[in-house]
Design a protein around this nucleic acid. Structure first.
Length: 284
DNA sequence: ACGAGAACCTGTTTGC
DNA sequence: TGCAAACAGGTTCTCG
């Protein structure tokens, strides 16, 4: 279930445990996730120091000593868990990383283990030269960071100009703005008071301004919620990046609109195969 | 060239 | 209670 805010909080949770650490051992427990692991994946990581933990869109990136970057995507159901030496961990307590769907175990010099778990296996890992990152097929067509400087009403106006598809589908198009998923697309459109059905090219001027503000606000609030709900971004069971966040429309079909003056009822519709939740009364 | 829909996979929730 | 269908926060491919 990770979108940009969840991936960001996973990165922030991983950073203190992993940055600066050497990988004593990497245990790759199956040949593939959504795609095959790269050749000699575990061997190429073994003994290397993790220099930087960072994020691009919904990808976790770890720059390794020696000039390679580890790319991790969590897909729909991917999770990372921290298992500190000697502390109780509910999942696979005898041997962390042996529970069902634990696919990769990163064994750190400190004795801490970081486990990647992904039942649906829509996640992926790859290892590429850091210098070639931007030309990697995963990143070459990727859009801008929604929390970055390029995210402006003018950028959206240009990107949206000839698009006749619903704005909801456009927000999910990672080639324009990268990192927004189904939940935060719904939430941002609610914040901007725009209908998910609105034709993309009509989002300009004041509407584009509202959308930029709403996207930034919604993502920032979610990241902050992760930081404040979780101590150091880590739950007591070692799980990273997941926190219950109060959504305004997502998953609230049939409930009243949270805007005091509105009194509308939240509806659900399916667009491009995904559920959209919105208030038909105040989102136009 | 573009967009809708299916496909990838497993687990959980919903509805009869 | 039981079982099947629907659904899940992502990405990518195919087809029209």
């Amino acid at each position: 279930m990770p979108e940009l805010p969840e991936v960001e909080t996973v990165c922030r949770g991983l950073e203190p445990f992993m940055a600066g650490q050497c990988l004593k051992k990497v245990d790759q427990r199956r040949p593939n996730l959504r795609i095959p692991f790269p050749k000699n994946f575990a061997a190429r990581l073994k003994g290397k120091q993790i220099e930087v933990v960072r994020r691009r869109a919904k990808y976790i990136l770890m720059d390794m000593q020696g000039g390679e970057t580890l790319i991790i995507h969590l897909g729909m159901s991917g999770r990372m868990t921290i298992h500190q030496a000697g502390s109780f961990s509910p999942r696979g307590r005898d041997r962390p990383g042996t529970a069902p769907h634990d696919h990769v175990v990163f064994d750190l010099e400190s004795g801490t283990k970081v486990v990647f778990t992904d039942p649906r296996r829509f996640g992926l890992m790859d290892l590429v030269p850091t210098d070639d990152m931007e030309s990697h097929r995963l990143f070459v067509k990727m859009g801008i960071e929604p929390l970055g400087n390029q995210m402006t009403p003018d950028f959206l106006k240009r990107a949206f100009k000839d698009k006749r598809t619903p704005i909801k589908a456009t927000l999910l198009d990672q080639r324009i703005v990268a990192g927004i998923g189904n939940i935060y697309a719904c939430e941002a459109l609610f914040g901007a008071q725009l209908s998910p059905r609105r034709s993309t090219h009509t989002v300009k001027g004041e509407r584009a301004e509202r959308l930029v503000l709403a996207i930034r606000q919604v993502l920032r609030a979610a990241i902050e919620a992760g930081g404040s709900t979780l101590r150091d971004y880590v739950q007591s069971d070692g799980e990273l990046g997941y926190f219950q966040h109060a959504f305004q429309v997502y998953s609230r079909e049939g409930e009243p609109c949270v805007r005091d003056a509105c009194k509308g009822e939240i509806k659900r519709l399916v667009q491009a195969g995904r559920s959209s939740f919105y208030c038909p009364k105040c989102q136009r």
